[in-house]
Write a protein that binds this DNA or RNA. Structure first.
Lengths: 183, 183
DNA sequence: TCGCGCATGTAAGTTGTTACATGATTTA
DNA sequence: TAAATCATGTAACAACTTACATGCGCGA
């Protein structure tokens, strides 16, 4: 149900095409909401049907027409209502933790490799978030409220990734400890 | 696809009923995997069909029979294979961050209340995780590997909640800052 | 010329949610 | 006597994933 509002929130900033939204979801919204392009296009269709957005077809040469989506009055209202109603926290579903829960079945070498890969991914994500913070949110005190809220969302991504990496250190320290007692 | 393996991982510890599994999912597995009882019962049926578990019907007086699920050899193998294959990280989908992204639409008072409620929930969860750590994982160095892996999964929950609360402080500090400039 | 970026979608299948359904036992 | 715990499910719907489908322009 919330993808709808994630889209409206993205469009609340600026009119975008499905393609642009897809890009935004995997960059600036990476720590906020995840959606595949198929989901996005389908949901945009529904938003159009529900008249929460308007669509402008922008002809292009040698490419499919762009379909530029714009949030309208009803969309704004729906979004405003939604952001002001409480929602539970998202469900936790993490395969990595399932693996640890059955940790005695893990092959130490393969698992170390998986952890290395995970670390790489988290570091990359953290670097990206930090670069966004540097470029767009360098002096929070002077930013307009709108930006400061978005900065907080970004901060969560940054703190979260830092925290993930701290935890990974604990995990790898533990695994090394096991090696020593075995060998 | 992973609920299946979350169930197998839970059954890998000990034989359980659907009811027990449901309980386990919202306590010890709270930071690992989320599932409703409907999903659990359905998936247990499938695991039975696939012959990855065996079922023992335990008659009871005045209550429906217990159905006790036990992981079998095939189940163990399937689980071992799964834990040793890499998986991407879980998708991020957080309505709270969507709200911040459209933060200019937030009603300050309602949002403060929602944050207070969220803080309460996170604190409660953190307390629970800490109590588990105190009771079951008090001296990590002397635990058998099996327990130490599970401790790491728990640590993620603890660090994650602490991190959430740190972030919440940032959020509330920011909101108070806005109040001051307004008033 | 090969792959990437741009730009849009459909179809089928799996997973997850919400509502419905029952009923005895224990605890406050 | 009301609520929580024990104990199992079905049915309908909504959300999400994976695979399929197309095709031009541009840079290496």
């Amino acid at each position: 149900m919330s993808l709808k509002f994630a889209l409206l929130a993205a469009l609340h900033e600026e009119p975008l095409t499905g393609y642009d939204l897809n890009h935004k979801f995997r960059t600036r919204l990476a720590n906020v909401w995840n959606a595949s392009h198929q989901q996005i296009y389908r949901e945009l269709g529904k938003l159009d049907e529900e008249k929460l957005v308007s669509v402008e077809d922008v002809p292009q040469k040698g490419r499919p027409d762009k379909r530029l989506y714009r949030i309208n009055k009803s969309g704004q209202e729906a979004l405003a209502t939604w952001v002001n109603t409480p929602h539970g926290r998202p469900p936790v579903r993490d395969p990595l933790l399932v693996k640890l829960f059955a940790g005695d079945l893990l092959d130490p070498e393969r698992f170390s490799q998986e952890l290395a890969e995970i670390r790489r991914g988290w570091l990359e994500q953290l670097d990206y978030f930090r670069s966004v913070e540097r470029e767009h949110f360098s002096n929070p005190a002077e930013m307009p409220p709108h930006f400061r809220f978005q900065h907080l969302a970004l901060r969560r991504g940054i703190l979260g990734m830092e925290n993930n990496l701290t935890w990974l250190d604990e995990v790898e320290a533990m695994l090394e400890g096991l090696d020593c007692t075995d060998g």
